[in-house]
Design a protein around this nucleic acid. Sequence first.
DNA 1: CACTTTACATTGCGACTGTATTGTCTCGTG
DNA 2: CACGAGACAATACAGTCGCAATGTAAAGTG
Lengths: 191, 191
Amino acid sequence: MPRKVDHRERRELLADALMRLAATRGLEAVSLRHVAAEAGVSTGMVQHYFRTKDEMMGFALEMVMDRIEERSRAALTPGSPREIVRALLLQILPLDETRRLEGHVGLAFLAYAAVKPAMAVGLREAADGMRGFLADQVRAAAGPGVDPDRAATGLLALVDGLGLQLLSRQFGEEDAVAALDAQLDLVFGQS
Amino acid sequence: MPRKVDHRERRELLADALMRLAATRGLEAVSLRHVAAEAGVSTGMVQHYFRTKDEMMGFALEMVMDRIEERSRAALTPGSPREIVRALLLQILPLDETRRLEGHVGLAFLAYAAVKPAMAVGLREAADGMRGFLADQVRAAAGPGVDPDRAATGLLALVDGLGLQLLSRQFGEEDAVAALDAQLDLVFGQS
DNA sequence: CACTTTACATTGCGACTGTATTGTCTCGTG
DNA sequence: CACGAGACAATACAGTCGCAATGTAAAGTG
C-alpha cells in the first residue's frame, strides 16, 4: 500500500469547507469546484475522496449531526432532570457563532432533505432519540398534570422554532434563553 | 395599448408553477425553463413577466406570505383570546395537503432567505406582526404569572417547530394539535 | 530495484443555467 | 387603415455544473 493518508481527516477537511460555503452562500453554492476552492485544493482531490456529489453531501450532513450529538453528550452533566434537559436544549440553540454557522447548515440541509428522502432518515432518527430522552427526563420529574411525551415534543419543537428565529436574528440570545426557561417553568413547575 | 392581459394573473400562474416545483423537487430545481415547462408556457413568456429570476423568486415569496396572511385573516373568528389564538395558530400548522405544500415552499424560502438578506425582511416583519398580535391576546387573558411577550414568542416558536416536524412526518397531525393545546393550557391556564 | 497501488492534478464533455437579442403576431388607438 | 406597443416565441451566448478519463508523482511491498 502506497502513500498513507487519513481518509477521515481529508473528508472532514472538505466537509468543513462545504459547511462554510453552505452557511455563507447557501447550499446552492455548493459545487465540487467551489468546495475545492474553499478548501484550497483541486477539484480532482474532491472527486478522489467523494465519488459523487451526493456522497459528499451525505458525509457533511452526518458530520453536522455527529458534532451536535457530541456536544450534547459533552453537556451531559449530573443534576436534576430539569438541569439536564436545560443543558441539553441549550446546546441545540444557536447561541454562539459556531453554532449559528451549524444552524444555517442544518437549515439548508433540512430543506435539502425535504426533497431527497434518503437524507431525511438520519434526521428523523436523531430527533426521535432526542424526543425519547427528553420524555424520560420529564417523566422523572414533571408535575402530575403533564404528559411526558407531549411535553418532550413541545420542548423540542420550541427549541427548533427558537433556533429558527434566532438564525434570522428576530431577537437576542437572552430572549431565547428566557423563553426556554419560561417553558421549563411550565413543564417542571415553578422553582 | 395592445392586447390586454392581466399581469397579476399571469404572474400568479407562473408563481404557482414555481411553488409546485419547489415543493416537489426543491428550490434548486426552480429554473426559468422548468417553471415555464411546469406552467406549460415558453421560457420567453416567463422572461416577459419577470425580468430576472430574483424578481420571480421575490414575487413567489410574497405570494406565499400573502396567502398565509389571507388565511389567517379568514380564520379570525370572534371568541375568547384563547380561541382566537388557537384558530390562528392552527392556520399556520401544515395540517392539510395544500398547507403542507406551502410549508415546504416556505421552508425552502427560509433557507433561501438566510443567504439572500433582501428576501428576509418581509419574513421578519410578518413574524413580528404575528408575535405582537399574539402578545396582545395573551395579555388580555393569561394568568398572572405569565409574561405576554415571552408567551407569544414561545407559542410562535412552538408552532414553527411543530410545523417543521410535521413536514418531515415525524408525527401525526393530531399529535401536533395536542401539543399546541397542551401549550395553550399552560399559557392560559387549564380550562 | 521493479512494481503496484494510492493520491492527487488536469482536461474535456455534454447538459444545464440566467440572460440578451431578435423576430413575429396581435391587438388597441389615433 | 396605419402603426406602434405589448405579448409572446425562438435562439444564441457565455458560464457553470457533475462527472469521466487520463496523466503523473510518490510511497509501500516483493
